[in-house]
Amino acid sequence: MIDVERTDFVSVIVRDLERAKTFYGETLGIQPNTKAHASYPEFETGNLTISLRAEADHFTPSRTAIALRVPDVDAARTKLESVGVAFAGETFDTGVCHVAFFGDPDGNALMLHNRYALVGG
């Protein structure tokens, strides 16, 4: 059995690095790693590092959606929509959580997520 010790990062490929840096760092307000290499900017969500790199050719958007926890999905969605972020469909209430699908400027999959039910309850 291989020994997966942890998740080091999720690598998200974008077409325009500056646009993506503005989105993750300013629009979403995720803390940048100031020690990251300029060509591979990193954003720290607390437990997960999002590692960006640019690739213009053969680009396909990520379908590996990163579920970002916010205290209030509706409020966060409203704020993001007010600055032009496009969401896909309505916000779901799954019975245990609220989830809203959106994308970064290159269409890489993200979610706003908040679980309101107790885990295992």
Partner: peptide
Amino acid sequence: MRWSGADVQIEKTDFVAIPS
């Protein structure tokens, strides 16, 4: 550094969704 933008208060990553 003060966060700017939409101030959506991202607290952590809850999970990463793997499509199947």
